[in-house]
Computed example of a mutant assay.
Amino acid sequence: MKPVYTLAEALAKDPGRVAKTQALTLDSARPHMGLKGRHGLFASVAWWESIEAQRLPTQTLTGIIERTYFAGQDSRRGDQVNSFTLRMADGSAVDESIYINHKQDIRLFVPGAMVTMVYALDELKAQPAADGGVNVARIVLEVAVSTR
């Protein structure tokens, strides 16, 4: 498996994302928007430590790419993809977005390749979720893809 994405690397290239996310968490005028911040502000030392100590729940998905496709309404070239269907071991399928830190790694997202995605499940301010449970943001932490 080749690591193709880490949130830490993506944030190093876009520090404004951290500032905006943290500002929304701290904005009491928007009580239903943003992260709750219960495990530390997004991407802060406390937040990363909460993930490492398993206080902030994570989810790992592993499966085989069934198909790749373009999702969205933006203009694009005919060969461009940004999403894929991941077939899980239990037979279920989930649609996911492609996350990469380096453009050349998009070539690894092909039908038949295995993908592992790790998410942080960070609680949102807006509660509860539609099903009555805890409403969380699924934040992609890492992505790895098999190579042939």
Rank of each mutant, 00 (worst) to 15 (best):
V115M: 12
R87E: 08
G112Y: 15
A113N: 14
D95R: 03
R87M: 04
V110W: 08
S92M: 05
V115K: 11
K103Q: 07
V81F: 03
S92A: 07
V81D: 03
P111L: 12
L86T: 09
P111Q: 14
D105A: 02
Y119E: 12
D122T: 05
N101G: 05
R87H: 02
S92I: 01
I98Y: 00
D122S: 03
I100C: 00
M117H: 13
S92H: 07
I98F: 01
S83H: 08
T116K: 14
D95A: 01
D95M: 02
G112V: 14
Y99W: 08
G91V: 00
S97F: 09
G112F: 15
V115W: 13
D122E: 07
F84C: 06
V81A: 02
D90N: 13
M88R: 15
M88G: 09
L124S: 03
A93K: 03
R87D: 03
G91N: 03
D105N: 10
P111N: 14
T85Y: 06
D95H: 05
D90H: 08
M117D: 12
Y119W: 15
G112I: 13
V115T: 11
D90T: 03
T116D: 13
L124V: 02
I100G: 01
I106S: 05
D90K: 08
I98G: 01
M117A: 14
F84Y: 15
L86K: 10
D95I: 00
V110M: 08
H102K: 09
H102W: 05
H102M: 02
V81C: 04
D105G: 07
V118I: 14
I106F: 06
K103C: 01
A93W: 00
L121R: 15
L124D: 04
A93Y: 00
L124T: 03
M117L: 15
V81E: 05
E123Q: 10
I98L: 02
I100K: 01
L121K: 15
R107L: 10
R107M: 09
S92F: 04
V81N: 05
M88Y: 10
Q104S: 01
R87Q: 08
I106W: 05
S83Q: 07
A113D: 11
T116I: 12
V110D: 08
N82L: 06
I98M: 06
S97E: 09
N82H: 07
D95Q: 04
H102Y: 07
V94D: 10
T116F: 13
D122N: 05
V118N: 10
E123M: 09
E123A: 05
A120Q: 14
M114S: 15
Y119T: 12
F109W: 11
G112E: 12
D122L: 04
E123L: 08
I98R: 03
F84I: 02
R87N: 04
E123V: 12
E123R: 09
Q104L: 02
D122I: 04
D95L: 00
Q104P: 04
L108I: 03
F109S: 07
D122K: 05
E123G: 06
V118Y: 11
